[in-house]
């Protein structure tokens, strides 16, 4: 299984806020069904751990939910939002599905690759930016678009992409 190939890392130290949130969301399900909270917990923990899930991080989630580690790996490898290798601080997930392609997502991807000097799937050497492609994000009428962290950036043009990159460098973009 490819999980064994990826980099090992110490367990992240969770903030008090994250711990409280995890406790709260586990309570959203009947007492013996806490496993249902796994996706939400993985999102919280991934954010705390710098944007990716190491095997150690996943083992920690298994302990929290009192389930086998394999049950966490199974889930983390199925859902595309989870990163199983380290990524940049700002991950640009560009939608490349039909409706966005009709309005120019190819150009946005080309522009990003050129501007950042990396290919799709790669991270800049300073660890700032990663480019990824993604399938339809439910913003088809406002394409081309990308998701960066929690938020959408829509109706993109090459100029808007340049502005976004600069704003990230200045630390002005909420993720």
């Amino acid at each position: 299984m490819f999980v064994t190939k990826i980099v090992q890392k110490e367990r992240p130290v969770l903030s008090e806020k994250a711990k409280a949130e995890i406790q709260k969301v586990m309570g959203y399900y009947p007492e013996d069904k806490a496993k249902s909270a796994i996706l939400r917990i993985l999102h919280i923990v991934e954010e705390e751990a710098g944007g990716w899930l190491s095997p150690d991080t996943m083992d920690m989630v298994a302990e929290m939910l009192q389930i086998e580690p394999i049950e966490v790996y199974e889930v983390a490898t199925f859902y595309t939002m989870f990163n199983l290798v380290p990524v940049g601080k700002y991950v640009f997930e560009v939608c490349h599905t039909g409706p966005c392609m009709l309005v120019g997502s190819d150009n946005i991807l080309d522009h990003l690759e050129e501007k950042l000097g990396i290919n799709i799937g790669e991270t800049t050497s300073d660890g700032m930016f990663t480019i990824q492609t993604t399938q339809c994000l439910g913003a088809c009428g406002y394409g081309p678009m990308l998701q960066c962290g929690k938020y959408y950036h829509e109706n993109l043009t090459p100029e808007k992409v340049d502005e976004l990159i600069e704003a990230c460098k200045r630390g002005e973009v909420t993720i």
Binding site: K35, I38, L39, L42, L65, E74, F78, Y79
Partner: peptide, 24 residues
């Protein structure tokens, strides 16, 4: 309850699997 990025979880039984904390 959030998903994790998988179109198939829109199919109702995959959705229920996912809501139970499993692969969709």
């Amino acid at each position: 309850s959030p998903g994790g990025g998988a179109y198939i979880c829109g199919e109702e039984t995959a959705l229920l699997e996912s809501l139970e904390g499993k692969r969709g």
